[in-house]
Design a protein around this nucleic acid. Structure first.
Length: 264
DNA sequence: ATGACTGTTGGTAACAGA
């Protein structure tokens, strides 16, 4: 089974690239993040035999699972998922639970597509929200991780190790690399999940995101923040970042992470 | 080079992203 995760940075803007990529990469299951729409344009995918489970807000966020090996027990969000409200917005009495998680069972594999909150800056309310969100996600999946083949995929907005950013010295005081964020990720992997390491296709350093600005992609100054966390019922035979999807006209700033696996 | 982008909309400027 070929499983992929891709932050498309708007499925509307990325539709030509996404539809083309589906036929090139031939994934069985694709987890998408930042669809940025309320209505997923699924016509072409469906014509190729895919089903789509989409959880969308509109302008921000939005996650989907696209599968050609079945799509059952869809969960829009997870149990106990916290919401977010800016502290200075008195009009919002209740925090908004955002479209950042969708789960489904595809061909016997329980799979989640996650768009973890960015955090913005250390000390920002969004940073506390990010940590809380990860802690509650950990609690929500604690049981089902042990019940069968399981993967959590998506844009975690965390670089697990210093080597997962182009130069850790440029990240002093930044989000995505703090001990607290890594501890929150560690609490998830401690449930029995392995951070699948994509192999190098070109550079020794393997990233999945490169800022649009300043030629960062061509300098390979990126970050590995799109992850596939798999339990021991998943046997990985290959994993790589599809850098070709980051090239050319109108790419996302993220590339797909592709994992070939079988279920034990 | 203190630069460099891209996406969205109660839209044409502001904000978010990472």
């Amino acid at each position: 089974m070929r499983v992929a995760t891709w932050n498309v940075n708007s499925i509307g803007a990325r539709l030509p690239r996404f539809n083309e990529w589906l036929e090139l990469a031939e994934p069985d299951v694709v987890c998408l993040q930042e669809t940025k729409t309320a209505d997923f344009p699924s016509e072409h995918a469906e014509s190729l035999g895919y089903e789509v489970a989409h959880h969308g807000d509109g302008r921000w966020n939005g996650v989907a699972i696209v599968s050609r090996v079945g799509l059952e027990d869809v969960s829009l969000g997870f149990e106990g998922q916290p919401g977010f409200a800016p502290e200075d917005d008195a009009l919002l009495a209740m925090p908004k639970v955002e479209a950042r998680a969708v789960g489904a069972t595809c061909g016997g594999l329980r799979i989640w597509s996650l768009y973890v909150p960015n955090g913005r800056s250390v000390g920002d309310p969004h940073y506390a929200y990010k940590l809380e969100w990860l802690a509650r996600y950990r609690d929500a999946i604690a049981t089902e991780v042990g019940t069968g083949p399981f993967v959590s995929t998506g844009d975690f907005n965390i670089a697990p190790n210093d080597a997962d950013v182009w130069d850790i010295r440029d990240f002093v005081g930044s989000t995505h690399v703090t001990p607290a964020e890594r501890a929150a990720l560690g609490a998830i992997t401690d449930l029995g999940l392995t951070d699948v390491q994509p192999r190098s296709l070109k550079y020794d350093e393997v990233f999945s995101y490169w800022d649009y600005r300043a030629g960062m992609f061509h300098k390979n100054k990126g970050m590995r923040i799109d992850l596939v966390l798999a339990n021991d019922r998943v046997v990985v035979s290959d994993a790589y970042v599809d850098r070709n999807a980051r090239k050319g006209t109108g790419p996302s700033d993220h590339a797909p992470v592709v994992v070939d696996l079988s279920l034990a």
